[in-house]
Design a binder for these strands. Structure first.
Lengths: 222, 222
DNA sequence: TTAATACGATAGTAATGCTATCATATTAAA
DNA sequence: TTTAATATGATAGCATTACTATCGTATTAA
């Protein structure tokens, strides 16, 4: 049996649905590759259009601007993470195990899976680590939020918050703890790669991992 | 007695030291105001030069580009926070109290203090909340790090890590916990203001604060 | 008194972030 | 099967951004 994961994306993210055409899928696929390669600041639609043999105007027909494209791929990533969480905790009895699985899925290195042929989950993971915060650190965060552009992130966070509540209903900060887990998983990885003195995940410490750090943090406090 | 706080800034941050001239101080002062007002993406040296009645070239004589100016003010902020931490924990006997003070200083609303007439700490705090991560989320983070441009942040983090180690020498993740405290304090504030469902700090919950959330988190796990 | 410097004024240039128009190929509807 | 709609390619254009360079003058330091 072939599995093919189809994530329903918010219509406000795009002008024309990139899933529906070859050009659209090339925009997503090579957009991810190019953002990963040169960084979101240096990334332009002109450069992308050259990579995929179309014109700048061709890309603009799909996305209003590069920030919307970033939101698209970041949203896709969070939806994918939520799907993975549901999938991997489906048959689990213990809430503790479910929370541990959530931490593991957010912290462990991501490998490409077969779910979508034109999206590299591994590159997406690195993009979210390095550029993810830029999707909401803008002056138009309020309008974007009204358009529900952060829903996938919130859904994931709320799902984890619900697990925390299930584990201990008297704990006072399930939502903050959930968003902290998600942010910290990605930030600590970024630090470990780029500013390692801010972490304890040196090359010598094979036993010390982001997942273990977060597990201790979470289960001590809830 | 008049106190005047002088923070020694990394020479690589600027081409000409902005502290040394009236124009330089106007660049810093109004740079902070303008970044706060329109956001770092929309901020340009041309707009800033108009505000302070100089020319674009005039600003470029002080800073290579706007990212360096952001680094300058962010570095200033972290140095100021470290200074505050040292100052406020100076006469404390208990390590626990010192850690609580660190959390408090990073989490509580910042008010302008008299330390520097041309820098608004309150605006800086909001800039760091909304734009701070952009100072290191770049493709040139490695070179910037070599130039020690993140030293103030690291110094603050290491000082907190040292307190954590002092409190419990057997705890395995003092550096990661310290950087997590700093990041989380600012991120949770940003969320509370902009994406409140990711937090538990609604207007109704006067007793629930970022400081209390972090205190519980930290002292449960160490 | 001269020499250095800081700054204002102005110009220029490549790249960015778009918008608009027109032609053509393909697909869908009548 | 003709017609109409749609998607893409090709090209142009334009305001803004992100700089760099030059020149004259006022102020300051040697």
């Amino acid at each position: 049996m072939e599995h093919s994961l189809k994530i329903k994306m918010n219509q406000k993210l795009f002008l024309r649905n990139p899933e529906d055409s070859d050009l659209g899928r090339r925009i997503i696929k090579n957009g991810i590759i190019l953002i990963h390669e040169i960084g979101f600041e240096a990334f332009t639609f002109k450069k992308l259009s050259k990579e995929i043999n179309t014109t700048e105007a061709g890309v603009y027909r799909y996305f209003e601007n590069k920030h919307r494209l970033l939101l698209y791929v970041v949203d896709w990533y969070w939806s994918w993470q939520e799907y993975r969480l549901v999938y991997h905790t489906n048959n689990m009895a213990s809430t503790e195990d479910k929370i541990k699985m959530a931490i593991k899925l957010l912290s462990d290195p991501v490998e490409d899976d077969i779910s979508t042929d034109y999206i590299s989950e591994k590159l997406l993971y690195e993009i979210v680590m390095a550029e993810g915060a830029k999707s909401f650190l803008t002056k138009h965060v309020a309008e974007d939020n009204k358009d529900k552009l952060f829903k996938p992130y919130k859904d994931l966070s709320q799902r984890i918050a619900a697990l925390i509540h299930e584990y201990n209903a008297s704990y006072g900060y399930p939502n903050s703890l959930a968003s902290t887990i998600i942010e910290t998983a990605h930030f600590q990885k970024f630090y470990a790669n780029n500013l390692p003195s801010l972490t304890d995940f040196g090359n010598g410490n094979k036993d010390k991992t982001v997942a273990h750090f977060l597990e201790k943090l979470v289960f001590s406090s809830i």
